[in-house]
């Protein structure tokens, strides 16, 4: 029998996916429904905003960006 599962398809790089899996495993697998392939995962629709936010803060921690020096003329 064919099944339809409601959720949000997330497409990202392999590196980003690794980070998402990391967030998921550290939070009791509360976000991800299914790991689809190297670049796709299925996430609970209600959790996607929270997941994105955690990814943002994780990236901020790990990748220190040089402050952009805007030269205005």
């Amino acid at each position: 029998m064919v099944k339809a599962t409601r959720g949000t398809l997330v497409k990202c790089d392999a590196s980003i996916k690794a980070m998402l899996l990391d967030i998921d495993s550290k939070n009791g697998n509360d976000f991800i429904i299914e790991d689809l392939d190297e670049e796709h995962i299925l996430v609970k629709e209600t959790k996607i905003a929270q997941l994105k936010q955690r990814l943002q803060s994780m990236m901020k921690e790990r990748l220190k960006e040089p402050e952009s020096s805007e030269s205005e003329a």
């Binding site: 339809a4 959720g7 990202c12």
Partner: peptide, 15 residues
């Protein structure tokens, strides 16, 4: 924006 999201349905378990 490093991820691209689409809301919808995953179809699985085809016979």
């Amino acid at each position: 924006e490093r991820v691209e999201t689409t809301t919808g349905f995953l179809m699985k378990e085809f016979n």
